[in-house]
């Protein structure tokens, strides 16, 4: 029988622990099937009080999803312990901070395996300009042109954004036609590009 997780039974701290340490422990090929199951759980258990568009428009990291699912359980969402763990895993994977703008519940489909997303860390190391040139050539030049003089993307040489936190925000999370680099480049590599751009 499904054991309905109620706050009175295990308490909120208990749920938090469960969500933090609960492991799905599945092999990658099993995970695709789990995604499909999780979609079903969202539709069955999360749509009674509000439409599920409130869920699919969020772009949150794992701990934010843990907090949200924990709050919903406290407010009456009926989830078994196993479903709660599955759901956080699913939501943190599909609706993470840098997921595309238009992900719906089952648009990407069950084929997408679940994988963990690291927490967002506010880290701004200082860069080494000599090492930035190569990273730029490999990743950015195609769009921003050689010497960062502009192309498909705007001119970056002498661009005041280089002295602004918006540089980091744009690099990490993307914007319009500009991809997000959070998971592709390290903070150090981004800092190196920035240092190099400032020499132009």
């Amino acid at each position: 029988m499904r054991s309905v997780l109620s706050v009175t039974a295990i308490g909120l701290p208990g749920l938090a622990l469960l969500l933090l340490y609960g492991q799905t422990g599945a092999a990658p090929d099993e995970r695709a099937g789990m995604a499909a199951r999780a979609e079903g759980v969202v539709i069955a258990r999360c749509g009674s009080c509000h439409s599920t568009d409130l869920i699919t428009q969020q772009r949150l990291n794992r701990s934010q999803w843990q907090g949200t699912v924990g709050k919903m359980v406290q407010w009456g969402a009926e989830l078994s312990e196993e479903e709660a763990v599955l759901l956080v895993e699913f939501l943190a994977t599909r609706f993470h901070q840098t997921a595309p703008a238009s992900v719906t519940l089952n648009e990407i489909g069950a084929a997408e395996p679940l994988q963990a997303e690291p927490l967002v860390i506010q880290e701004r190391p200082s860069g080494i300009s000599q090492e930035g040139a190569g990273v730029f050539a490999n990743n950015c030049q195609g769009c921003h042109g050689s010497g960062a003089r502009g192309g498909f993307g705007p001119k970056l040489a002498g661009n005041p954004i280089l002295n602004s936190e918006r540089f980091w925000q744009t690099l990490l999370y993307g914007r319009g036609g500009m991809p997000a680099w959070e998971h592709t480049l390290s903070r150090q590599e981004i800092a190196n590009i920035l240092a190099w751009l400032k020499t132009l």
């Binding site: 969020q58 949150l60 934010q64 907090g67 990490l172 999370y173």
Partner: peptide, 9 residues
């Protein structure tokens, strides 16, 4: 806001 936060977007 970046990082994004929960709530109506």
């Amino acid at each position: 806001y970046r990082p994004k936060v929960p709530g109506v977007q």
